[in-house]
Design a protein around this nucleic acid. Structure first.
Length: 492
RNA sequence: CGGGGCGUGGCGCAGUCCGGCAGCGCAUCUGCUUUGGGAGCAGAGGGCCACAGGUUCGAAUCCUGUCGCCCCGACCA
């Protein structure tokens, strides 16, 4: 196991090293697509379970729409095509043909199997879903339609990075249809709030919510909202989006409903999603130079017991006690893994579970059993303390709660320390030539001005925070009047 | 897609300039001794040197092309 590069040395190398060290994912032979390994997939399962329950609690139901989309569908919504055209994979043939190339067996597309209409591998599913919605929605009685799907999508990316940007990724996409503009807007904001709640309560990752500027809007949306988190290198990461689609897709796919007054109206729509990118966010938000750090609520294995023994008698004593403890902890920590591998020494196991981010490690040796205690090591602060075996479930439960809370507080504190309220362009360029971070500045709202800021500094408007109060001011860049401060940062 | 760097057992690398038996460390396997922070000794296995052409008596090494990875730009969740 090679050492993990220090964050201070090379942040992006560190990120990749943590993924390798914790065995989360690796590159596959196809550029930009990744293999998610069991430890990494466990995180995704944990994210799925929590969000899926929440979506259902709010009345959404799961469905599945196909991977392949007729080419013509994508062309129906003008903005939408333009946004995705440059990153679509296209299926053109349905068969391979055996050939020989340089005397070796090979295969190539059978020219006779060229498709009449080429198919697009979904970059997102609005089009194929709205084509179905037309058939499902007849009257106001059919509304709202609240659908979610867990799926993979593909966007042909130029430059990829494990979890943060891969050509194929896993996500959930919610698609809803409503009778009124207000209902659609309410749904958009409700789901944005679900994402905020999830990021903060489960991932222990504080986020800023708000609408994106027009140039960062989802292709085909009237308004896009995002949650933005700060990573440990002070850059921002968009961790989830919720779109108010207005009637754009309803019009493109001719989805009308009959009202109680017997008129025909186009329906109003939303879509919202989070992806495996959240795993990247999680890594960059909490992990340290020793490896992955997982918030307890996300960790499938919250506690691991490392037994320590020499002789067979000690082994029996310690393992029996470990099993007892594991059983006792089930109600507060779920399945507790006992690492009884004989071939590895305790110190090696400590290192491994640290790399993999297990929140709590219990070290249990004959001395501990004799004293009716165990050594509890907490991953987030790397502290070790002896704790009594009496009331251990309570102790562990409290420790897990404390870790969850402290991870959030540490992340929040880091964000606050690296967030600035700026008034002048000079302050702005000074900040982003140095350590960077979040800044709240006035902006005129004009796209050209926004672009000029990015061209010069790589800094973009992440969103217009919902918590941002109205306030008279002048644009940080061009000096024109502004009524609100917006959130600036360099972004992933 | 442009600029730069790099592809050699699972991982990290040396060897490439100047062609001549494919090496080192970690990991793996076996045995013995060990076990409270990444154990020691002895032995063993594992590589089409990214891929494809070419030059040569002979290529990891030289030439041409392709692919992949990392970094920096343009594009994006």
């Amino acid at each position: 196991m090679a050492d993990i590069t220090k964050r201070s040395e090379d942040y992006s190398r560190w990120y990749l090293d943590v993924i390798q060290a914790a065995e989360l994912a690796e590159n596959s032979p196809v550029r930009g697509s990744m293999v998610i390994r069991p430890t990494g997939f466990a995180i995704w399962e944990s994210i799925q379970r929590t969000l899926d329950d929440k979506f259902k609690e709010l009345g959404h139901v799961n469905a599945y729409f196909p991977l392949l989309i007729p080419k013509s569908f994508l062309a129906k919504e003008a903005q939408h095509v333009e946004g995705f055209a440059k990153e679509c994979a296209i299926v053109t043939h349905s068969r391979l043909k055996s050939t020989t190339k340089d005397g070796k067996p090979s295969v190539e597309p059978d020219p006779d199997s060229k498709l009449e209409e080429e198919l697009i591998i979904r970059p997102t599913s609005e089009t194929i879903i709205w084509d179905q919605f037309r058939k499902w929605i007849m009257s106001y009685r059919d509304l709202p339609v609240l659908i979610n799907q867990w799926a993979n999508v593909m966007r042909w990316e130029m430059r990829t990075r494990l979890f943060l940007r891969t050509s194929e990724f896993l996500w959930q996409e919610g698609h809803t249809a409503h009778a009124t503009a207000k209902e659609a807007r309410d749904e958009t904001l409700q789901m944005l709030e679900v994402y905020r709640w999830f990021a903060e309560e489960y991932l222990a990752m504080p986020v800023i919510t708000g609408p994106k500027t027009p140039r960062e809007r989802f292709a085909g949306a009237v308004e896009t909202f995002s949650i933005e988190a700060m990573m440990q290198d002070n850059k921002a990461l968009q961790a989830g989006t919720s779109h108010d689609l207005g009637q754009n897709f309803a019009k493109a796919f001719d989805v009308k409903y009959q009202t109680a007054e017997e008129t025909q109206e186009y329906v109003w729509a939303t879509s919202w999603g989070v992806s495996t990118r959240l795993i990247g966010a999680l890594i960059m938000c909490h992990s340290d130079d020793k490896g992955l750090v997982l918030p307890p609520k996300v960790a499938q294995r919250k506690v691991v017991i490392v037994p320590i023994y020499r002789s067979d008698e000690e082994k029996e004593l310690v393992l029996n006690k470990a099993k007892e403890i594991a059983e006792q902890l089930k109600p507060v920590a779920g399945f507790v893994h006992i690492d009884d591998r004989d071939k590895m020494r305790p110190g090696w196991k400590f290192g491994e579970w640290e790399r993999k981010g297990i929140p709590i490690r219990l070290e249990l040796g004959p001395r501990d059993v004799g004293n009716n205690e165990t050594v509890m090591a907490t991953r987030h602060d790397c502290n070790k303390t002896s704790v009594s075996l009496d009331g251990l479930a309570e102790t562990i439960s409290e420790a897990l709660d404390r870790m969850q809370k402290e991870l959030f507080e540490t992340a929040l504190k880091r964000r606050e320390e690296n967030t600035h309220i700026l008034e002048t362009w000079e302050e702005f360029t000074t900040l982003y030539n140095a350590e960077g971070g979040f800044s709240y500045c006035h902006h005129c709202g004009e796209t050209e001005c926004e672009e000029s800021i990015q061209d010069e500094t790589k800094v973009t408007i992440r969103n217009i925070p919902l918590h941002s109060e109205d306030e008279e001011g002048s644009c940080i860049r061009c000096g024109k009047p502004s009524k609100k401060r917006v959130l600036f940062a360099q972004a992933y």
